[in-house]
Every structure is written in structure tokens, then in C-alpha cells.
Amino acid sequence: MISSRHYLLIGILFVLTGISILFSLLSGSIDLELSVVLSELIEPGSALENQILREIRIPRTLAAFTTGGLLAMSGVVMQVLLRNPLADPYILGISGGAAVGALSAILLGAGSVFFTNAAFAGALFSILLVFGIANKFGQWSVTRLLLTGVVISAGWGAVINILLTTSSTNNVQSMLFWLMGDLSQSQVYLGHYILLAAGLAGGLIISRSLNVLSRGELFAQGLGVNLGMLRITLYFAASVFTATAVTIAGSVGFVGLVIPHILRLLGARDHRILLPCSILLGGSFLVIADSLARTLIAPQQLPVGVVTAVIGVPSFIIILRSTMTK
């Protein structure tokens, strides 16, 4: 059911997205004037400030937005797939696999290209491992998938701990940043934007089926949903969103879990609305969090994952309280 309230929500989120991006472009170790930002967007300049903007701030802001959007969308899909409000993009062990790949690359002193490939390979391995085990014995139930994911996740956790405890102090620092989520090394490419756009387009195409599946698998089948196909599609879509986000920025927590819930509490329960809103709110949330991560204790930087939790927890509780007393 789409109402004018939903269009208003989307409108507000677009404005929020614009503000968050502007905020991010203006803030950092060097303060930039609004006029510089605006003139750079119209006509690229050659001053130092323009270079900072073009080579550092804009790419980083776009990386934050893309990562946040992917994580929020993945969270929406995981929560429907598992019909579990506690589900988040990392619940099935994808981030664990990516972390083991990334940490191993750090341990081996690998360069950034190898590093991102290692993280993505780890995530991919974990996706296939969980799918293979959960699928192995015929009937693919949500409980089996969830249990498999949680157990594999715990296994990765153990490997991560081994890597952390056996690494040099120097490496441990960058490992911890990666594990908490960090955008300082992030790069996004055209492929990432295409994935985000294609994910949204695909999500909108099956959004009605997501609405039906939210009410249960039998119910969905009774209303004509091809459950087997849908489940596999959702599993791999959410997994690829997560794997990509984790490859860009490490395991940024909280966005994928809480953004979908905040939007549902604000009335965006229909996936035709929830999916685009989750990209806008997830993206702008991470853009703001990353701006704060760069500026709060400048010139030092905080891992963005710490900031997402620090702003996310109280705002979620406030929204939860205000919608419960209605």
C-alpha cells in the first residue's frame, strides 16, 4: 500500500541525502568554504582545495553512501529471508569470511588491490560454504540456514582471533580498524554504483513478493510466490551486497540492522517504499557517520563503525520509544 505519506518520506530522505553529502564535503581536517564546493561541482578548479575535494572528499563521500546503501538494502533482504528482526547483513558469516581474507592479506603485507580481492574472495567462499552446507540435505529451511550461518560465523570469529593474537602490534592496529569498519582506504568504482542501482531495480521488481514473504513461507506460496527461486535470489543478492560493502569499508556495524527497522517504524513497511528509502537513509547515515569519524578527534580518525553505533543506538531507541507510545 503506497500513500502520500510514503512520497513525503522519500522526499525528506532525498533532502537528508543532499544535506549529508554537503556536510561531508565541507568537513575534514581542512575546512572548505561552501562556495569552493559549489564552484568545484560546476566547474573543476585547480587550487589545493579543489584537489582535496576532487581526490579525497568526493570519492570518500561516495564510498560511504554506496556502502551504507548496500548494507541497509542487504539488511532489509536478510530480515525478510530469515523473517527475523535480529538478522543483519553479517548474520550468515559473510563478514567473517571477508575479515579472514582481509586480515590474512594484512598479515602477508599485501598491497591494496590484493587486499580487497582477498576480502571479496573470503566473503564469496563463506557465501558458498554456508549455502552448500544449508542446501546439502535436501529441504532448505530457514532455521537450518540461520544455524549454519551462525556456526560458520563463529568459526570465522575464532580464525580472526588467532590472526589477531599472532600478529605484530603494527598489523593489529590496521586489522582492528578494518574489523570495526573504516572508510579511509576506500575506493568505489563504476561497478559499485551499477550494483547498487541494479540491486534497487531488481529489488523493486520483486518487492511485492518480499511483502508476501514477510508474512511467512507457506502464506507466500499460497499466494503464488515461487518460494525456491525467491529464496535463492534473496540469499545471493543480500550476500553480494554485503560482500561488496565489506570489501569497500570493512565490517561497518549497525547500519544493516537498524536502518530497516527505523524505516519500518516510520511506516515504510511496503518493500516498494522500504528498498529505496533504505538506500537513501543507509547511505546518508553512513556519510554523516564518516564525516564525524574524520572530524571528531581530528587530525586523528575514528573507525566509522564506532561512530555508527554511537549515533545509531540512541536514535534508534528514541524512534522506538516515540512510536510505541502512539
Partner: peptide, 24 residues
């Protein structure tokens, strides 16, 4: 089919749920 069990872990209103009947 009227099934015996329904799932309410994710929020939805009565109207939204009834509307889902048009899905096919």
C-alpha cells in the same frame, strides 16, 4: 488456502496484510 499459522515477526497493519491477498 487458509493456513493455520501466520508469522508476525516483521510489522504490518491489518489493511496491508489483507491487501496482500491480491498478490496472485
Amino acid at each position: 488456502v487458509l493456513f493455520q499459522d501466520s508469522i508476525e515477526t516483521l510489522p504490518a497493519t491489518v489493511l496491508e496484510t489483507i491487501m496482500l491477498g491480491r498478490h496472485p
